[in-house]
Simulated assay, not measured.
Amino acid sequence: MDDLQVLLLPGWQDSGPEHWQSRWEQQRHGFSRVQQDDWLWPRRGDWMVRLEEVILGSQGPLLLVAHSLGCQLVAAWAAHSQHTARVAGALLVAPPDVEREDMPPNLYSWRPIVRQRLPFAATAVASVDDPYCTVPRAAAMAADWGARLVEIGAAGHINGDSGLGDWPQGLELLRGVAEAGGLSPTITPW
């Protein structure tokens, strides 16, 4: 599985240096961040096109690791792409409820939430005190996407402010996604 690639999909405003996604990118061979042109005013169509470009330019089996708005990106991309077979699975961490009334206007283009079943293995991760999504809403999205839901207790938005460090539990969840997608990851850190 040396050719396994993990694409990190940050959410709105990108992932800062203390975010587990940034740590994974720096420490793990084969983990790379998908860069978007506009992190502040993200447009769903633009982000979908960028993800499609990166996936088409990648070799080997792919795993997607999405945080926050990146989860909505995975759902929207999968509903429209003809290349979903390139993806073995997705870890969807802290999906935000972009349909809430208190969401900033920067995120209005992400409405409505795409709720089509994902054509690959997926696990969604929710925190009981996420300020951007309640557990029942996260559970509903996960069910619609056909994703297994894992609640990890009180971890806020499961980001750099959550103090997760390298987040080994997340790596284990990713291993489970890989196995559910038919892969046997043998690369570091597994």
Rank of each mutant, 00 (worst) to 15 (best):
W145I: 10
S109H: 02
A66V: 10
A147G: 06
H67T: 02
M48E: 06
A85P: 07
C71A: 05
P131H: 04
V87T: 09
A154W: 08
G45E: 08
L118A: 04
G146H: 05
T123I: 15
L73K: 00
D144A: 09
A124N: 04
D46N: 10
M141L: 14
A122V: 00
R100I: 10
G156D: 12
C133R: 07
A139Q: 13
V54G: 04
E52T: 14
L63T: 02
A85C: 13
H67A: 00
A88Y: 03
S58G: 03
S32C: 11
D129S: 09
D97R: 06
D129G: 07
P61A: 14
G156V: 13
V98M: 03
A94G: 08
L91E: 02
A143V: 13
P95R: 01
V125L: 04
A122M: 00
V150E: 14
A147F: 00
V128R: 06
A75G: 04
R33M: 08
M103W: 01
V49K: 13
S81A: 10
S32N: 11
L69Y: 00
A138W: 07
A94P: 00
A79V: 12
E151I: 14
G156A: 01
S109E: 12
V93F: 01
L63Y: 02
Y108S: 15
L149K: 08
S127Y: 02
R44I: 09
V150Q: 15
L69S: 09
P105K: 15
A79C: 05
W145N: 07
D97F: 05
T84N: 13
G70R: 03
A124G: 09
Q116K: 11
P131F: 08
R100E: 07
A143Y: 13
P95C: 03
L92R: 07
H83A: 09
G60L: 10
H157E: 11
G60H: 15
Q59S: 13
D144E: 15
T123S: 08
T134I: 06
R86T: 15
P96E: 09
L40R: 11
R137L: 07
E53A: 14
R137S: 11
W145A: 07
T134Y: 02
L64S: 00
Q72S: 08
R137N: 09
Q59P: 13
G89V: 15
R115K: 14
P96F: 03
V135Y: 12
P96W: 05
S32H: 06
D144Q: 09
A142P: 10
V54W: 01
A126F: 01
M141F: 15
R33E: 06
Q72H: 06
A140V: 08
A140M: 10
R50I: 07
V114G: 04
